[in-house]
């Protein structure tokens, strides 16, 4: 939390120098681009005449109009209450984003035709591969963290070797090593289990470190209090230490989950039909790459947003014992 001062400063976007500077920069930037071919220039036709022949005057007029709209927009949003500000800015950025994709002239019917398969095959595979990997990685992480904190030389050595190795290799290489390497040892492994194994081991290694720091953040007094009541190690860990470590662990772990969701795209290289694989292959035949890639991008993003929401809910849940 950035604790705000009680002395209210004037809102930045209402300071004259800031507004003027912003106006100037926007004006210069849009004058630097030749906007005469755009829809906005067409809208300006009554003022500047034929856009392509309007020259410097045209550029200035277009840049000036955009700068006025932009600055006015920012200044007005500055008056709104916090929640509304956040909503409006999100919405505007989203609209700009959509406008950007509009310029690709994507074929909507094509997307509509392929989307069901992209979801029923791709999203489902992506989700279950990441979900299983997340569960396994979490289990590995708890075990690894305890091992790294223990006084047992074997446990510590194995756990630190493991985290060092799997954090030290690129995930893509781990995917290849497991998929292509294990058969050399006689274990023929399918693409999906190989992918899950690689993701679990890699993320288990990162999450081991997160869990370790979470467990270490708990005051020694908590251990002593539970010991003094006769709690054994497992009970202390499960009921006292881990529940308190969770609020510390959850934000970085949420990060890992989101990251894993997207890194599950790496298993596409060994032919798992997940979202990324389908996004690359479905559009190939008709050279409609962008349609599928952008659809997949939006789907990845929406899935990540879901995880973000879940994470913030859990964080709020654990904030309970901290409020006065």
């Amino acid at each position: 939390m950035l604790y705000p001062d009680t002395v209210e400063a004037e809102v930045l976007v209402h300071k004259l120098w800031f507004v003027a500077t912003m106006f100037g920069i926007v004006l210069l930037v849009f004058m630097a681009f030749n906007m005469s071919g755009t829809g906005f220039a067409e809208l300006m036709r009554p003022v500047i005449g034929e856009p392509s022949t309007s020259g410097l005057y045209g550029r200035f007029a277009i840049g000036f109009s955009i700068a006025v709209i932009f600055t006015l927009n920012v200044v007005l949003i500055g008056f709104a209450p916090l929640k509304l500000q956040i909503g409006i800015v999100w919405l505007e950025l989203l609209l700009l984003f959509i406008a950007f994709f509009e310029t690709f002239h994507l074929s909507l019917p094509f997307i509509r035709e392929k989307l069901p398969f992209l979801i029923s095959q791709g999203v489902v595979t992506t989700l279950y591969v990441s979900a299983i990997s997340i569960v396994i990685a979490s289990v590995i992480a708890v075990a690894g963290a305890v091992a790294k904190l223990s006084n047992n030389g074997f446990a510590y050595a194995i756990a630190s070797f493991y985290t060092s190795f799997f954090r030290g290799l690129p995930l893509l290489m781990q995917v290849y090593l497991i998929y292509l390497g294990l058969p050399q040892l006689g274990f023929v492994i399918n693409a999906v289990p190989a992918g899950i194994l690689a993701l679990s081991l890699c993320y288990g290694a990162y999450m081991t470190e997160i869990f370790r720091s979470g467990i270490q953040s708990i005051d020694r007094g908590q251990w002593e209090a539970s010991r003094s009541m006769g709690f054994g190690f497992a009970l202390t860990m499960r009921r006292i230490i881990l529940p308190q470590a969770l609020p510390v662990i959850i934000p970085p772990t949420g990060n890992q989950f989101i990251s894993m969701l997207k890194d599950s795209s790496l298993v596409s290289v060994i032919g798992v039909w997940e979202l990324m694989f389908l996004a690359r292959t479905l559009g190939q035949k008709t050279f409609q790459h962008m349609e599928m890639l952008i659809s997949a991008a939006v789907i990845y993003w929406m899935l990540s947003i879901c995880l973000e929401l879940i994470q913030s809910r859990i964080e709020r849940h654990y904030a309970r014992s901290k409020v006065r």
Partner: peptide, 22 residues
């Protein structure tokens, strides 16, 4: 049997050491 001994010996700490999540 350390647990049995400890559960018969109560201890109160300088910094309370209550379990804050309960």
């Amino acid at each position: 049997n350390v647990a049995a001994v400890r559960s018969n010996v109560g201890m109160v700490f300088q910094h309370f050491n209550l379990f804050p999540h309960m």
